[in-house]
Design a protein around this nucleic acid. Sequence first.
DNA 1: TATAACACAGAGTATATTGCTCTGCGTTAT
DNA 2: ATAACGCAGAGCAATATACTCTGTGTTATA
Lengths: 186, 186
Amino acid sequence: MSHFGSGTEYGLHCLILLAQAPGAIISSRDLAELQGVSVYFLAKIFPRLEKAGIVTASEGIRGGYTLARPADEITVLDVVEAIEGRKPLFECQEIRGRCAVFGGQPPAWATAGVCGIHAVMIRAERILHDELARTTLSGLADGVGRKAPPGFETDVQAWLADRFESRAQAQIAAVKKPRPRRQNET
Amino acid sequence: MSHFGSGTEYGLHCLILLAQAPGAIISSRDLAELQGVSVYFLAKIFPRLEKAGIVTASEGIRGGYTLARPADEITVLDVVEAIEGRKPLFECQEIRGRCAVFGGQPPAWATAGVCGIHAVMIRAERILHDELARTTLSGLADGVGRKAPPGFETDVQAWLADRFESRAQAQIAAVKKPRPRRQNET
DNA sequence: TATAACACAGAGTATATTGCTCTGCGTTAT
DNA sequence: ATAACGCAGAGCAATATACTCTGTGTTATA
């Protein structure tokens, strides 16, 4: 297993798509089906991004998500912390005060300040966070844009727009087929 | 929960003690009881440190562990990787190739090279590792030495030496009390 | 040579997390 | 009225964490 879960991966991919379509409202279902990941799982991730102020939600049919602020103001660290939660690199249990030679009453010098091991971990964690905060969603989106041929991004937007538009037609189709619910292919 | 488990914390504390007593053989039981942590749990951690070449084990009564190389040649990263295993920061599942507009056959450009998100994570991971590799066991031990009053380290060594010496006497004591096994206080 | 403590291997256990599935509720555009 | 939406939360199998305990073989000492 890795330190960051797949939720973070899915979330970042979705947010890049939102960054490429500024202002567009895209549902978690469409984002999931576009990328071939679980609709249900993605639907659990987005509320966290909303609570963190990264996306804004709109309800009802034709509802969905949009970036809450410009893509260059959302860092990878913001997304990781929103989805994974703020779990620290290291949780100091203050072993130093338990030393048997203290006999249960550790002297002041033993528990003063930050434990040496903990200090190393705090430093490493800050460096990791700084690095993750260096890349923004617009930076990631630019990277994708540079690799893809000119037509690709348009195709993706067309795919999403088609889904969005078909919300109205779904109602008409429902007259013929009672339950036209899509199945997920995961 | 934190990214690094308590095994890493216990391990580092034990290795600092071994670094402070170069050449001494200390059993996992003594290390555990000196620090008030689980004897059994520590006994599961040390074989990993041995497999990683950080400590060497000696068997039998009066057996135990010593550092396998000088304390300034063992980094915090070495210890973390030995105990936690080499789990990556991020495990790329190649979401980019699953895009629905590709219809199951992603073009070469889409899957060429490293995924942009993965690239950010690889960079962050290397920076984290570099930072953890910057501190050695001797560096940590020096930090403890600077904080503690002059007599402390001697007291600890005396506590451990006393345990080590008493291995022989334990057999004499066993004649009077049939089962003089120590209980752990965790 | 019996013994006690050791390293080491591995089974077992309680609890938590991960990744995912599914149901139900209130909201919204048609 | 309907269908799809966000959102909250229950459930669930698989895995991980932090221990706990047992058993095997090794070694120094009385």
